[in-house]
Design a protein around this nucleic acid. Structure first.
Lengths: 343, 343
DNA sequence: CTGTTAGCGCCTTCAC
DNA sequence: GTGAAGGCGCTAACAG
């Protein structure tokens, strides 16, 4: 497995003390140029690579952060992870990704491990609904930034969008284009799905504001946020005596699944039914028809999350902050006013 | 940041030596039950968590492996990462994910860092085309398993599918359904895209075997494998004097982008043009029409990669192996014989 | 400016 | 069965 070249080996080779070699390696100021050259030569010659493990043990910090997401294969989380990895890389930080499966038990477990094992300097947790009480058991062990909903009360730094507002906007857009029977798709109805609860709130608020009735039959719950879940939901909605003329889906995957199911049912989008999604994943621009969706500022989320985390890691003790990142509605074909989409 | 409870703290608390505590923590055999109980009590009381960093430094192994992929947000890699993370988790291994951007320089750089910094016990590298010569500079520092093409010669363990064969099958399927002007989409034509070269080989071989001419105009290269790349390619192909009646795309994303562009151009799939993709990402089952695609056994890849890697980490010195994982063609609507898809 | 000395927290050979 | 030392490789006090 190759020979481990240590600092001492290099020191001996160069005829100096380990201390001096360390100074050169870490670019410390007070080293004479001549010495620097000499040590550097020995360094190169032996192909020295510092043992990061030993360094971390000594310094008490690793340069690694953990990113905990429900599922890395879910496009939204994949794209989010990409943003975070990219930004972290710029900052010289390595990201360790783990999956929680959206399971709060496993969420806490992983958080606990990450927290106390000293592997990571901090954690970014994209939680589906970790409660504040659950977090109490953790104590203030590692810096944690929460993504998604601020379900942990004000205990943790948080970065997210205004889901209620964004949902209202999306539904308002459907109302503006003349739709009146707008269905909502998504939300498991469990305690651990705070996000969908907020999106549902926004949906209802928009209807109420427009003076429309809130018909519970028009909300189709789904166990998860997948394309497959949407198929079931859409079939149910289409079977109603008064089927909807628009669908507000709580994720783009749900929307994509809905588009497919509508197509299978011979229902034209947006002619017969408009569809709006949520997240603006890459795929949304390439569905048929292209998907109108709520687009959160993902790079902004990554940036804010890392900024907050690094500040905490740096030792900041200010009380938990809540960063609101903008989200805007991207209007594409799936909700275009009907007359403009002859096709 | 919480108080770091060390082994010694626990030892003092229990009135024993650190050695004994260590024995209890690591479930060593020769500890008297009474002692075990006493130490365990102290352990619990103080909330001891071993410092994994120190343990790793001592043992020379971390229980962490690195997964290097071009882009985690690319669905295929996201889904692959999921399989690997899930399987690794079962094995008690943590996965550190990093992105190479498909850049061979960065690939090597990350590999080198991973190799020598002692952070990781091994590396799974999904490379777009790392050359064997490039690897020579690395030396046998860490165990590495290569995914994708076996571009590193026989220096490294490798897991992959038979791209030539799978591509031939896909094209044969198109031929069987009566298509004769079959285009291929994908491949940057650079040195670093071994995968597309093989898929192209398979495509050509199938045509030749069927006695059809290989028309270079029918191969549209793309800079990457994205949906956006496909749009350009499809427009080019449609502008030909004799446009194709089928598209063989080197990724599902290219296929999804193609479907969209064909739709925009008013071309019916599969009536006018059949489309086949590659990878069988989740999305493939939900495009309109649903996508026929080559489906590699992804869990099999994850399993094989981890098995090989763990064996190497365990110290095996056998010469590099090459595991071929099966891939099968999943036929969906986008290539159905025309008469059956009155739509 | 450079060398010496201690540990970071853990595991493990050696004794008892 | 348990205690006492030593060291994994590195960096940070403290001299000099």
């Amino acid at each position: 497995m190759g020979v481990a070249v240590t600092l001492r080996d290099v020191a001996e080779r160069a005829g100096v003390s380990p201390r001096t070699v360390s100074n050169v390696v870490n670019d410390f100021p007070h080293v004479s140029p001549a010495m620097r050259v000499r040590v550097q030569a020995a360094l190169d010659e032996l192909g020295y690579r510092p043992n990061l493990l030993a360094r971390s043990l000594r310094k008490g910090t690793t340069g690694i952060i953990a990113l905990l997401v429900p599922q890395i294969a879910v496009p939204y989380f994949g794209e989010l992870a990409h943003e975070i990895v990219e930004r972290a890389s710029e900052l010289g930080i390595t990201v360790l990704i783990d999956e929680t499966g959206g399971d709060s038990v496993r969420e806490l477990e992983l958080l606990g491990v990450a927290a106390r094992s000293s592997w990571v300097d901090g954690v970014i947790l994209s939680s589906l609904g970790l409660g504040g009480s659950a977090l109490a058991s953790l104590g203030a062990t590692v810096p944690v930034v929460l993504l998604g909903e601020r379900t942990a009360g004000t205990a943790l730094d948080h970065v997210g969008i205004d889901n209620v507002r964004a949902s209202m906007e999306a539904v308002q857009h459907l109302l503006d284009s003349g739709r009146t029977r707008i269905a909502a798709i998504g939300g498991s109805g469990t305690e651990w799905d705070a996000t969908s609860r907020l999106r549902l709130d926004g949906y209802r608020a928009a209807l109420v504001a427009a003076g429309l009735p809130v018909d519970d039959a028009l909300h189709a719950r789904t166990p998860h946020y997948t394309r497959a879940d949407a198929a079931v939901a859409v079939r149910k909605l289409l079977a109603l005596a008064e089927p909807p003329d628009a669908l507000f889906c709580f994720s783009d995957e749900l929307a994509a699944g809905s588009l497919r199911e509508l197509h299978v049912g011979g229902i034209r989008v947006p002619h017969d039914v408009s569809v709006v999604g949520f997240d603006d994943i890459e795929e949304a621009g390439y569905t048929t028809p292209a998907l109108t969706t709520v687009s959160p500022d993902r790079p902004g989320i990554a940036r804010a999350a890392l900024d907050l985390l690094l500040e905490r890691i740096g030792g900041s003790e200010v009380r938990a902050r809540d960063v609101r990142v903008p989200a805007r509605l991207v209007v594409r074909e799936s909700s275009m006013p009907v007359q403009t989409t002859a096709g």
